[in-house]
Amino acid sequence: MEFLDEKLEDYVNAHTSPESEILSELNRQTHINVLQPRMLSGHLQGRTLSFLSKIIQPQRILEIGTYTGYSAICMAEGLKENGELITIDVNYELEDMVKSYIEKAGFSDQIEMKVGNAMDIIPKLDKNFNLVFIDADKSNYSNYYDLLIDDLPKGAILIADNVLWSGKVVEEIKKKDKDTEALKIFNKKIQDDDRVENVLLPIRDGLMMIRKK
Rank of each mutant, 00 (worst) to 15 (best):
K7A: 07
L8S: 06
H15R: 08
L23V: 09
N27F: 14
R28G: 01
Q29M: 08
Q29F: 04
L35N: 11
Q36A: 15
R38F: 14
S41N: 02
L44I: 08
S50W: 02
I55Q: 05
Q59A: 15
I61S: 10
E63R: 10
Y67C: 04
G69M: 06
Y70Q: 08
I73M: 02
K80S: 09
K80D: 08
N82W: 00
I86D: 08
E93A: 10
M97Y: 02
Y101R: 01
M113Q: 09
G116I: 13
A118E: 01
P123V: 14
P123R: 15
K124E: 15
K127D: 15
N128Y: 01
L131R: 06
V132Q: 12
F133R: 06
I134V: 14
S139W: 03
N140C: 12
I157R: 00
L158C: 14
L158H: 08
W165Y: 07
W165R: 11
S166P: 04
S166E: 03
G167D: 01
E171K: 11
E172T: 11
K176R: 08
D177S: 02
D179F: 00
T180I: 04
K184R: 14
I185T: 15
K188W: 01
D192I: 15
D192A: 14
N198T: 11
N198C: 13
L201R: 12
M208G: 10
